[in-house]
Computed example of a mutant assay.
Amino acid sequence: MVLFLLERVAPSPVDQVWRRLTTWERHGDVVPLTRVTVVTSPPTREGTVFVARSGIGRLAFDDPMEVATWRPPTEGHSGMCRLLKRGTFVTGWAEIAVHPYGSGRSRVVWQEELRVRRLPTAFDRPLAWVARGMFGRAVDGLLKLP
């Protein structure tokens, strides 16, 4: 199991950054070899389920996630959501928080606990390094998308 934290400052207001990070299908635009499908009907709320399918052909796996906490930002206030990873291969959770940060900017805090089943703990450090890099690039990409 690995736990990692990412922080970013975005030059956009909280509501815009929140929308960029929580439009789940967009994650497939920034994570290589991944397609995200929302299984439940909109809008996103507690209980929303979506699946990230990553890989190619038989080397692909599903990473189903459920929204456990959904608190969108309100005027001048932070937003936070918690996702539970419910896969047979990848488990854990992620918390995404978006806070006001000065005039018209936002601070993103992404914290995640990640477990890959049957992966020995000796691989935790390399997994943390890879996950931090991959999720960091994903967050950066989501913040740049229109």
Results as ranks from 00 to 15, higher is better:
residue 1 M to Q: 08
residue 7 E to G: 07
residue 7 E to L: 06
residue 10 A to F: 03
residue 10 A to I: 03
residue 10 A to Q: 01
residue 13 P to G: 06
residue 16 Q to F: 05
residue 19 R to V: 00
residue 19 R to N: 04
residue 21 L to I: 09
residue 21 L to Y: 06
residue 22 T to K: 04
residue 31 V to R: 09
residue 32 P to K: 08
residue 32 P to Y: 02
residue 33 L to C: 00
residue 34 T to A: 11
residue 37 T to R: 15
residue 39 V to Q: 14
residue 40 T to D: 12
residue 41 S to W: 03
residue 41 S to N: 10
residue 42 P to M: 11
residue 43 P to W: 08
residue 50 F to Y: 14
residue 50 F to N: 05
residue 54 S to C: 02
residue 55 G to D: 09
residue 59 L to Y: 07
residue 62 D to Q: 05
residue 67 V to S: 03
residue 68 A to N: 03
residue 70 W to A: 05
residue 70 W to S: 05
residue 74 T to F: 07
residue 78 S to A: 15
residue 81 C to H: 06
residue 84 L to I: 07
residue 87 G to L: 13
residue 89 F to D: 00
residue 90 V to L: 14
residue 91 T to D: 00
residue 94 A to Q: 07
residue 94 A to W: 01
residue 95 E to T: 13
residue 101 Y to P: 00
residue 105 R to S: 13
residue 105 R to E: 13
residue 109 V to S: 07
residue 109 V to R: 14
residue 110 W to K: 02
residue 111 Q to A: 15
residue 112 E to A: 10
residue 116 V to Q: 06
residue 119 L to D: 06
residue 121 T to Q: 13
residue 122 A to N: 00
residue 124 D to N: 15
residue 125 R to G: 09
residue 128 A to T: 12
residue 133 G to F: 10
residue 134 M to P: 00
residue 137 R to N: 10
residue 142 L to S: 10
residue 142 L to C: 11
residue 143 L to F: 10
residue 144 K to Q: 15
